[in-house]
């Protein structure tokens, strides 16, 4: 245990020594504070702690829509785009040199000659590197949690689901960087390969997502697309799913199984966070009472889209990928002569 704590302490010191860590943390706090500055009044929405006000009939203080709107900004925009993309790229750039530096002659010798197994050394060093993202997301979530409590009177601990989910997302990409680092000891190469794998992964997930929408959500919403003519039309009636598109979607879905679900994991937060008893995927629950039948149908279709993959599938297939990649990296690390 003492050895594990020592490696984690070293990881913390490494993070604290990196300027990029503090820059990203500053930006994270800034964005979180911007979010916290949003409030609700009887007339609508206030921004920058009341400096600006936007009148709105629905999103007003005390309404369910205000609660939903506030949480939606967090789950649909801040988490996927800042924490799940830009901050993650910066984290990857910052953390990528950790293993190549650690593996350099003269550095690895000291650590590996101690009475600690190579497997444990490798895994704790890997986990220590994840602190970069875990700390950033935790700080962000604490501010968001306080903002929610202060603004809406709801102390929603489910917000903290973002910490393990986004750390897992980062760990999936970072595992690739670690494997390449163990094989090549090159920071640049490991960064490039990790970004490439991430890009491919995102492409596969986007394709799967778009194909699902084309196969199921659009017909349910009465939207039909004529690919030959290049136009689309919308009716108030639910349409039948196109068999060809459904068939193609099935192929894409199966092809996506072995890939890590970085995007799906980020949006999994919508399932984990709830507002007034309904999680953020339950669109129909947040419709106004006077919503039309087509609105309800579209909301249901969107709900189905958000829930098309089970949590077990998303987490399980991602962890399978990570275990596979890390297993190879660890195997190479254990067998390697330094």
């Amino acid at each position: 245990m003492r050895q594990v704590l020592t490696i984690l302490w070293d990881s913390y010191r490494l993070l604290a020594a990196k300027k990029l860590f503090w820059i990203v943390l500053f930006l994270t706090v800034l964005i979180a504070m911007m979010y916290a500055s949003i409030g609700f009044t009887p007339q609508g929405i206030s921004m920058l702690f009341g400096a600006y006000e936007i009148n709105n009939d629905i999103i007003v203080e005390g309404s369910m829509f205000a609660d939903y709107f506030y949480m939606m900004i967090f789950t649909n925009y801040l988490v996927p785009w800042w924490l799940g993309l830009f901050a993650l790229v910066l984290a990857l750039i910052s953390v990528c040199p950790v293993f190549p530096d650690f593996l350099k002659t003269g550095s690895i010798d000291v650590a590996i000659s101690k009475p600690i197994s190579r497997q444990l050394l490798f895994l704790v060093k890997y986990l220590g590197s994840l602190l970069f993202v875990a700390v950033q997301v935790l700080v962000f979530c604490v501010i968001v949690f306080i903002a929610h409590g202060m603004r809406l009177g709801a102390w929603n601990f489910e917000i903290f689901w973002a910490v393990p989910l986004l750390t897992l997302v980062f760990s999936l990409i970072y595992s690739v960087a670690v494997l390449v680092a163990v094989l090549t000891k090159s920071t640049l190469f490991s960064l490039l390969v990790a970004l490439l794998v991430w890009a491919v992964t995102l492409s596969v997930q986007w394709t799967e997502s778009l194909m699902y929408k084309a196969a199921y959500v659009m017909p349910a919403s009465g939207i039909s697309i004529d690919v030959g003519r290049g136009n689309a039309s919308k009716t108030n009636q639910e349409l039948d799913a196109n068999a060809d598109i459904v068939g193609f979607y099935d192929i894409v879905r199966k092809a996506a199984i072995p890939f890590p679900k970085t995007r799906d994991l980020t949006y999994l937060l919508k399932k984990k966070v709830s507002v007034r008893g309904n999680d953020m995927t339950m669109m129909s629950a947040f419709l106004a009472d006077e919503a039309s039948a087509s609105d309800v149908r579209e909301a249901k279709a969107t709900e189905d889209y958000d829930n098309r993959h089970s949590t077990a599938y998303i987490v399980g297939s991602s962890l399978g990928f990570e275990v596979f990649i890390l297993g190879i990296a660890c195997w190479v690390f254990v067998r390697k002569d330094f």
Partner: peptide, 24 residues
């Protein structure tokens, strides 16, 4: 080791404590 490289972000005393920690 020959050409030993210790983390530059650590202080001299911390390097010794780090290695002691790795030794349990």
């Amino acid at each position: 080791p020959e050409h030993a490289r210790f983390p530059e972000y650590l202080r001299g005393g911390e390097v010794i404590r780090y290695v002691a920690g790795l030794s349990g």
